[in-house]
Design a protein around this nucleic acid. Structure first.
Lengths: 304, 304
DNA sequence: AGAGGTTACGGGCAGCGTAAGGATC
DNA sequence: GATCCTTACGCTGCCCGTAACCTCT
């Protein structure tokens, strides 16, 4: 009981190997070398005198004992975090959160979130992946991300989510292209190129559906970079189809780009915060809570 | 979360310091040097950024945060043992159990207990203290023992106990001193010196009370060593007042010492197993269970 | 041949012990 | 002055990284 004790670190490593079904990926997630992972697992097995993974290591699968240990390990890990959180001051919440973010969020309230998180948990670090929502969803499912802000809903058993914020999508154009200030019909809008999100994204496809429904054709510029979309709109290349919220923070864009008056209905972009169900990343949960808070406060400044 | 993680060892050390209210005693119990204990506590406080013991270290008392941590630490420690026990094979139950034992138990079923424990948990070690029950009880209260087999009942809030076995006390003498085989009255017995347990022990005092009640005087040899009692009886020095059970295992004594027939009522010796309520020593609990089992089987061989 | 699990080996650090200091009764 | 907490310091052993190997696809 007292000589070569199991520690929380070993349990954490074991949990990740078990969850990710891979030594290499666990090592990657934990930012350590694969041999270190292997050594911990071997030490565990030796200490318990039990095989935790199938003798055939090619297929990384838990033995019955391994499954049993996983249950205990996750419970212990949860209680450990609970303890730290309860007793330690805020500086105790450390570590790295692997965060996936939709670009729309980057352009709206992500900086606010970071400011607030940093004020509350100064020791917390991030590994940020800005990408389109379908990709982020896959990364959540494969547990390569601890947390993501992306377009919902998420239909996956292993990923939980909560609503964050809802952005209306509108047609936005630079004044200089000379569109009237009165309400304008879609058939006039499509005379200009439409600039929007990348293919495979929800707003892009929504726009395509709208055009098909109305029997109209239009040139669509799809950009993986929102910055590029805004820049093109500012350059008078076409009409951007984006949530006005994302130009709220950009002075030059906010001053020159104008939301067109139309009666056209484009579906809102419903953002959610998502995270894998296990292993529970306590710090990520904290960030999620703050994100929900920040996102809820956002609409107040949304004037466009 | 990942850099200088708390481990179970630190929690264990913290628990003992908190329970024993002393760094030195905790170090002693854990078989390590006091500075090692201090370093662990300091590391804990630094990690949590919280004082766990009163700033005035002379009085080792928990701060409110310390109390809170103690709750969590003991829960975690319990779950840790549970996990080890559930998944690990029997060789996983290691460590040292500080065991206090009444000498009567040593002479009856203690060897059987050791044999069985050793067969089940080969890695388990003992630190045995053979002593009289009042002393053992004090050591239990002060948590200097993990487990004890002693005369009950134990009336202490912090010590739990379960009944083990009940030994009748009888007058036992060597054949050569020529006492009749028929029933013999106390007034004849007291012509010989009576040899029994040490002063301050329950059986000694019971014998004194019996004599006082009957208005008889007798020479009493009180011995702290049961071996000496038996030897004196074998040498024909007097009549031993002991549980016959303790000579069951000694061939020479069993063949020559005889239980006298009397109608005299001496109270039975009721042995119990006792342990401090916290911290829970899992291995000690296992030993207690086996002891109860062994003690229950004993009477079957008790023929004297 | 590439990917992933495994073994060999070396360096850095943390935990423990010894020895000595300091405070309190 | 005895006891107990505390500090200083050196050593051992463990953990992790690098590099190379093995095996299966």
């Amino acid at each position: 009981m007292t000589v070569p004790m199991i520690d929380f670190r070993s349990l954490e490593i074991f949990i990740w190997v078990a969850e990710l079904r891979s030594f290499r990926r666990a090592a990657e997630k934990l930012n350590i070398a694969p041999p270190a992972v292997l050594a911990r697992i071997n030490a565990l097995e030796q200490f318990l005198n039990v095989r935790l993974f199938e003798p055939d290591r090619r297929r990384v699968a838990l033995t019955p004992e391994g499954h049993e240990l996983l249950v205990h390990a996750e419970r212990l890990n949860g209680m450990y975090s609970e303890m730290i959180e309860k007793i330690g001051d805020r500086s105790t919440t450390r570590g790295i959160v692997r965060l996936g973010v939709s670009e729309s969020i980057v352009h709206t309230w992500l900086p606010v979130l970071f400011a607030r998180v940093n004020a509350t948990y100064p020791q917390l670090g991030f590994e940020i992946d800005v990408n389109i929502s379908p990709y982020l969803r896959d990364r959540l499912v494969s547990k390569d991300l601890d947390l993501a802000f992306l377009l919902g809903p998420i239909n996956s058993q292993n990923v939980h989510s909560r609503p964050l914020c809802s952005f209306p999508v509108a047609f936005v154009a630079d004044d200089k292209i000379g569109l009237p200030h009165e309400s304008i019909a879609l058939e006039h809008i499509v005379k200009w190129p439409l600039i929007t999100f990348a293919r495979n994204t929800e707003p892009y496809m929504a726009l395509r559906q709208l055009l098909a429904r109305e029997g109209l054709r239009a040139t669509i510029h799809a950009s993986a970079s929102l910055e590029a979309v805004v820049r093109m709109a500012l350059d008078g290349i076409g009409i951007a189809v984006i949530p006005p919220a994302i130009i709220e923070k950009k002075i030059d864009a906010r001053e020159r780009l104008r939301r067109l008056h139309t009666t056209i209905e484009l579906p809102d972009l419903n953002f959610v915060v998502g995270w894998p169900d296990a292993p529970v990343h306590r710090a990520a949960q904290k960030v999620a809570e703050i994100a929900i808070e920040v996102a809820r406060e956002m609409p107040k400044s949304e004037t466009a």
